[in-house]
Design a protein around this nucleic acid. Structure first.
Lengths: 199, 199
DNA sequence: TTAAGCATGTAAGGTGTTACATGATTGA
DNA sequence: TCAATCATGTAACACCTTACATGCTTAA
């Protein structure tokens, strides 16, 4: 059984307990978003599709006039979810505009390379910060009240997010310093807009 | 001027010197692929589009019966490319199936979490290794012969790829060990397929 | 002569985002 | 009463991959 990107996050979220499409979206936005996003435009149609394939089953849970459908895995869905978890991960995709600019900077504007690296470092620090807040919230949840995310595995992943971004921030900061050393003349002429010849 | 993902890598590659679509694709595959991919199905139509917008200009460079078009940035294209490099990077997208599985493993199959982390570590080591080979090739190129990639900025980016993957490999290896400590009983029962009850 | 590589392109189909549309409930 | 939030959904559009189609050139 082939699961597409949205199906994977849906069956994963439903493995913990039944949820509505809206709840799944909230959970994704508060947890996996940084490495596995999904939008309403994917989630709702995919829920319908998974139900038609017999992997999940929806139950009406409307309260008064407010419509609500809660989905749960079927036995088959649970089997497929377990099978998916058991396979070696395949998907790894990255799109990093900061790296792309750094890659080109030597040719188009060597003097700006350190700035680009610093900007990228700032972005990494920012993400690390936001994830740290999330971690603090999760840890506060642990004593009392239902947890916002399915389980403890989420903490491991969160820590990866925090530490990898901290590592990246330091790396880019160091790279910026080194790039500055490599082209100090160009850097000095930064604001005045000189013609750049070298060889 | 809004550049889409493919346009960004095209104008960046052309900033160094004129190239054909085929050359651009080869370059992408040997350099930016790990953080910014592009396929023929995007590159060729986008070259046409960028030409119709006046950012690049194609010149026929056929040799005998073999068709070939080499594209160069126009003055406007060069301006747009410089402007793009000057803006703060925006795009950062990640899709990491290993992290997603780790996130869910606690609920669906806690005993497998260390395996997932180890698999992810192996993947990171593999990528680091492939990038190291690439680095060796680039460094060999440096003395004599035209370089395979536009400039030195590419080395910085390559090193980021290598070091970040080495860091990730170590992190996941450490995480695997810690996850094993958390659930040693489950781990011991790994091969025999026991029913898993706990609470 | 034949395989590998050079070179360009299209069609089909899946993926994914954004904006829009609708309406109920809850708390300030 | 009014904003925020709960809740579901669709349409348009952009993005992207894969497979296919075509034909030339070069080196083994």
């Amino acid at each position: 059984m082939e699961l597409n990107a949205t199906a994977k996050v849906i069956v994963g979220m439903l493995a913990a307990r039944p949820r509505s499409g809206y709840e799944i979206k909230q959970l994704v936005d508060h947890s996996t978003r940084f490495f596995w996003a999904a939008s309403y435009g994917q989630i709702y149609p995919e829920l319908k599709r998974l139900e038609s394939e017999g992997l999940i089953e929806g139950t009406d849970a409307s309260q008064g006039g407010r419509q609500r459908t809660v989905y749960d895995l079927t036995a088959e869905g649970r089997r497929v979810a377990a099978e998916w978890i058991g396979r070696a991960p395949e998907v790894f995709e990255l799109r990093d505009e900061g790296l792309l600019k750094l890659f080109f900077a030597g040719v188009t504007d060597a003097g700006r390379a350190p700035d680009i690296a610093r900007e990228r470092a700032g972005r990494a620090r920012e993400v690390a910060g936001r994830l740290s807040e999330l971690e603090a919230m999760l840890e506060a949840d642990e004593d009392g009240g239902p947890p916002a995310s399915p389980d403890a595995g989420s903490l491991t992943v969160l820590r990866y997010g925090i530490e990898s971004n901290e590592w990246a921030a330091e790396w880019f900061e160091r790279a910026a310093t080194e790039l500055e050393k490599e082209a100090p003349a160009k850097r000095a002429a930064k604001a005045t807009r000189t013609s750049r010849r070298r060889s």
